[in-house]
Design a protein around this nucleic acid. Structure first.
Lengths: 419, 419
DNA sequence: GGCCATTATGCAAGTTACTTTCATAAGTAG
DNA sequence: CTACTTATGAAAGTAACTTGCATAATGGCC
């Protein structure tokens, strides 16, 4: 049992209930007339009128001008949800870049931004880079900082419930950083931090391949392949935020997936890591336009991803050798994906992340390999969001946090609390 | 988002809300005085009085005689939850026996019963055996059939959402049986069917080792080892009811665990199955007190469990050879348990099922083997419920179903619907 | 045994919030 | 310009919760 409102209440809780229901109807069902709304929510017209007046007072609803000519009879008063009353900011922090998405309260994207980060930068510098990107993003989108009602950030690695990165293999020095607190300094609203695969899963359910699917696993294939799971429509983080890290078992084939793609073998992870290190050190002295000047002082993830990108591209236009490499990668990953499918029995598995490109070869190969290992007819599909997924998922997480306050029925006790 | 009450409502929903809160306070907080209750629920005394009158009318609450001498002042009227107003029945159907538990509405056990079943009996006969056991159980406990408000049954194998056994390796002929419908004929209340490991997990959270733990995995070690998971305090069934069947991957070491124990090897499952078949066929002609006369016509699970029991017993009093066998089993199972721990990151893993006996050797060995493979400090503990777990879990599931109706706030639409 | 402090009860008046009802306003169609 | 349609505005009515006060029942004290 989650949390039952042990306390009954005054008639005022009824008002709050109706207020929340009306606001939801207006936001999810789009603008509407007074009587139309009353019908949708199941309340009488006078009540709806009173509730709306209150919502207008709180700045959440606006009355539009009536539209004559829309039909017979006296024109109806029209109300709409004020999506512009607040905003949510989603941040996708990766080893070598940061992506941002700002959206209004209905999730309408108001702007985005991206900036490169030095892979080798220490955490402080990295966070400073994120701060600068946030500033630029807000300026470009024309969104004021005080209009932000919640911020969420995604990062590779395990994120503890308090927002600390407790384990991260792909961003140097990132472990132990209390990211929620660090980022929190820049904002006066709740700041959440979450694992990137988890956010990708939320994004796919919101606007991607898993729309309206309640039980979904998102396989986020990158340098290391992590998975995120939504169970009953809700994110499952695990007790320590480490859910989905099944790739920690080497035989699952989800570790160092990019390296495995590069070497083109299903040899053990040590061989792949060695190959990656070699490749990286070879690439260090080559000009590499995207890497910021001054970076590249030690083993970097960027050249590996670039190389992987070339392989995937080649597989896309049909190069037999490249296709064989991707097929071997799929064979390697199949165990781990099947294990997640068997453990959770989701309705759908969405495969996304940097290693998934147009052509869907990796996905169709995974489908072929994983399905025979499963008990249930799980649907394995490619991400529809590409590299937007983590940023969008972060926006969704922030919006969920906002909704918590927006639709809460019990009295707000401490509105200055940060999450 | 799960299910939002899109509709606002009359003052009557307020009454239903307060009625539910009062009932819950009375049930969970124990009996109380009128004023004391009002304070607990946060309502005024007159309101509480009205709500209680209504609850008494519905037969859910009774007024006890006031107790003079309990303190100063006028004796207070005392109210209590009528736990005896209805009952829940839990059924644990296994390959060779059926166990039943009846409990009242607070979960107080009113009676139990067990009966042997012929392992080789066809489904119809097996179900008839269950029916007979139900009858005997109700008679012994003095509970009338119409007093049953919900029934839940646990079985090995995968149970589809509609209550069909879609896959079962340990009960012959059990696949394809629509167990919920078959059992439903005997009752005029909702009948639920669930996988046994899932029920064991519910039981451990209710009254076992995982009290007050929201994220828990229960490893149910038997002929085949399945796992059940509670996530956020709720059972996670999976889209097709197959969640937790990670043992379908042979390298997880969870398949044919009893056979593996018997052979004492960590050889592949084929070797173990062959050994089991051999043992079974050898045991067929031996007298075996517990097996009903007429049974034992083909490969049976019972001798295997008996043999396994002897090994575990020997390990319990310290026989070195037997201990080594159990240690090898733990080593075999560690992969699968670790995979579940990594996939879900639960707070606790409870190890139960027929293969767990006093002494906890299997559990401590698993702890030693699994912890190094995990990212998070998961607690691995032994079941506290032994072979009661599945039956108790079934009772808990039935009680949850009852609670759904008891505390529902929206108007009941079709009270004759079966779940 | 009578009186007081204590605690709970029963009833009445007041408040909040929702609903129904009816007369009126503001448009469109002919 | 009239008739019809649809929405509005205000008033009366109902359900349910709260506060407040006089009253009842008990234990302890003198």
């Amino acid at each position: 049992m989650t949390h039952h409102s042990l306390h009954g209440g005054d008639p005022s809780v009824l008002r709050r209930l109706n207020s929340a229901a009306t606001l939801r109807a207006l936001r999810d069902g789009g603008e509407g007339t007074l009587s139309g709304l009353a019908g949708r929510v199941g309340l009488s017209r006078p009540t709806t009128e009173g509730v709306l007046a209150e919502l207008i007072d709180r700045g959440l609803v606006a009355e539009d001008a009536p539209r004559p000519g829309a039909g017979l009879g006296r024109p109806a008063r029209r109300y709409r949800f004020r999506a512009e009353a607040g905003h949510a900011l989603g941040i996708d922090i990766d080893a070598h870049r940061v992506r941002l998405v700002v959206a209004d309260l209905t999730g309408g994207v108001a702007g985005g931004h991206r900036a490169d980060l030095d892979v080798q930068a220490p955490p402080g510098e990295r966070i400073a880079g994120v701060r600068a990107a946030v500033k630029a993003c807000l300026a470009a989108a024309g969104v004021e900082r005080r209009s932000l009602w919640a911020v969420a950030a995604g990062t590779p690695g395990v994120v503890a419930p308090d927002g600390t990165v407790t384990s991260c293999t792909v961003v140097p020095g990132w472990e132990g950083v209390h990211l929620a607190r660090e980022l929190g300094r820049s904002f006066s609203c709740p700041v959440l931090v979450e694992n990137d695969a988890n956010l990708a899963a939320m994004a796919e359910r919101w606007r991607g391949a898993a729309r309206d699917v309640d039980d979904v696993v998102c396989v986020h294939a990158g340098l290391h392949t992590g998975t995120g799971a939504l169970i009953g429509g809700r994110l499952h983080r695990g007790r320590w935020g480490a859910a989905g890290e099944i790739g920690m078992l080497p035989e699952m084939g989800l570790r160092d997936t990019t390296a495995a793609l590069i070497t083109g073998t299903d040899a053990g992870p040590e061989a792949a890591s060695a190959a990656l290190a070699e490749l990286t050190s070879a690439a260090r002295n080559m000009p590499c336009g995207d890497v910021p000047a001054g970076g590249g002082s030690a083993g970097s993830a960027r050249p590996a991803l670039d190389h992987a990108g070339r392989v995937l591209e080649a597989a896309g236009w049909g190069a037999a050798e490249a296709r064989a490499v991707v097929e071997r990668l799929a064979a390697r990953m199949a165990r781990g994906v099947a294990a997640m499918a068997l453990a959770l029995d989701p309705e759908m598995i969405v495969v996304g992340g940097p290693l998934v490109r147009a052509g869907d070869l990796l996905v169709s190969e995974l489908r072929r390999r994983v399905e025979p290992l499963c008990l249930s007819p799980v649907r394995i599909v490619a991400s529809e969001l590409g590299d937007e997924s983590v940023g969008l998922g972060a926006v969704r997480l922030a919006l969920d946090r906002i909704d918590e306050d927006l639709f809460r029925v019990d009295r707000p006790s401490d509105p200055s609390a940060k999450g």
